[in-house]
């Protein structure tokens, strides 16, 4: 029973919340609202999938939001002149570069992840403002908006991207040697290195992958606004971290799963959706979200102690 709750606890909470809202709020069960819910949380789900990998190594990525903005701006700048395909490539390359920088600062220079990614976050923001004079980039091809707002049948494209990313990342984590190294180095870096594994390269890869996923998040966001904004995605890294911890992945590293993170992202999304529908002032939303994080992690921590 306890084991069941440890494994499926958050899923149960998600299901209960869903059932309660579904049966009590007519506006909630409106299909359009449900599709909106999925679409609005796609960006966070994608960024949080990468954040999960980082947190499993025992690290943190405070630059995820700024990397998303960087990818969006790079894509927008290239897209207006050279078309959508090159724009997307430019966005992802810029994101990967930021991630590589994180990875090298952490594994080669040895700066702790919190500080390294904080530094990269601030630098990235600065560069974005300098290079654009803080002005948005308009005039993107209209077709690009399908990425953010379009759908295949009733199913939003943004959500499809998130599902594909989550499935791939889940497979990478559970079914590849790389995933084993990520889990092992998060549990004990020294022992992993002494088992003949290139810990530095693994860490660099993790931060690069996380940044590419943040970049994908930024590209979806760009498709939703169709304007390249240097201050876009500000604070998104914190939403992603929240999804990871609400999902039950411990910050101590060595454990965790992508599925849990997706559940965490949905729980947070469901709450903000419900508050919206119940006409609660948006000012209340951060307070409620903060409370949910503390309650979820609190329950998890207490149940771990009692084992």
């Amino acid at each position: 029973m306890k084991k069941f709750f440890r494994t499926y606890g958050m899923l149960v909470i998600l299901a209960v919340m869903f059932i309660v809202l579904y049966s009590s709020l007519p506006t909630f069960r409106n299909p359009q609202n449900l599709l909106n819910l999925l679409q609005q949380n796609a960006v966070n789900a994608v960024i949080a999938s990468g954040m999960t990998l980082v947190i499993i190594t025992g690290g943190i990525d405070l630059s995820a939001g700024s990397t998303a903005a960087l990818a969006g701006m790079a894509a927008a700048a290239v897209m207006v002149r050279h078309g959508i395909a090159l724009g997307v490539v430019a966005g992802l390359v810029a994101a990967a570069a930021a991630g590589l920088l994180n990875g090298l600062l952490i594994s080669k220079v040895g700066i702790v992840p919190f500080v390294a990614t904080l530094g990269v976050q601030i630098i990235t923001k600065g560069i974005l403002f300098i290079s654009t004079n803080a002005t948005p980039i308009y005039g993107l091809p209209l077709e690009y908006m399908t990425v953010g707002l379009g759908s295949i049948g009733p199913f939003p494209i943004a959500t499809s991207i998130a599902v594909v990313v989550a499935v791939i990342m889940s497979v990478v984590l559970k079914h590849t040697p790389f995933g084993q190294y990520v889990l092992a180095l998060g549990g004990n870096e020294d022992a992993t290195r002494l088992s003949g594994i290139d810990v530095d390269r693994t860490k660099t890869a993790v931060y690069t992958i996380a940044a590419i996923l943040a970049g994908i998040g930024g590209l979806i966001l760009l498709g939703q606004t169709n304007t390249g904004q240097p201050q876009a995605a500000s604070g998104y890294e914190l939403n992603a971290i929240a999804a990871v911890v609400v999902g039950g992945t411990p910050l101590s590293g060595g454990q965790g799963s992508i599925v849990n993170t997706i559940i965490g992202a949905l729980v947070l999304g469901l709450i903000s959706n419900a508050l919206n529908l119940m006409n609660v002032s948006p000012y209340w939303q951060p307070a409620v979200t903060g409370l949910i994080i503390l309650v979820a992690v609190g329950i998890d921590t207490v149940s771990r102690k009692r084992k």
């Binding site: 092992a184 549990g187 020294d190 022992a191 060595g254």
Partner: peptide
């Protein structure tokens, strides 16, 4: 410290 990943 060096031989095992205890949580795994």
């Amino acid at each position: 410290q060096q031989g095992l990943v205890l949580v795994r």
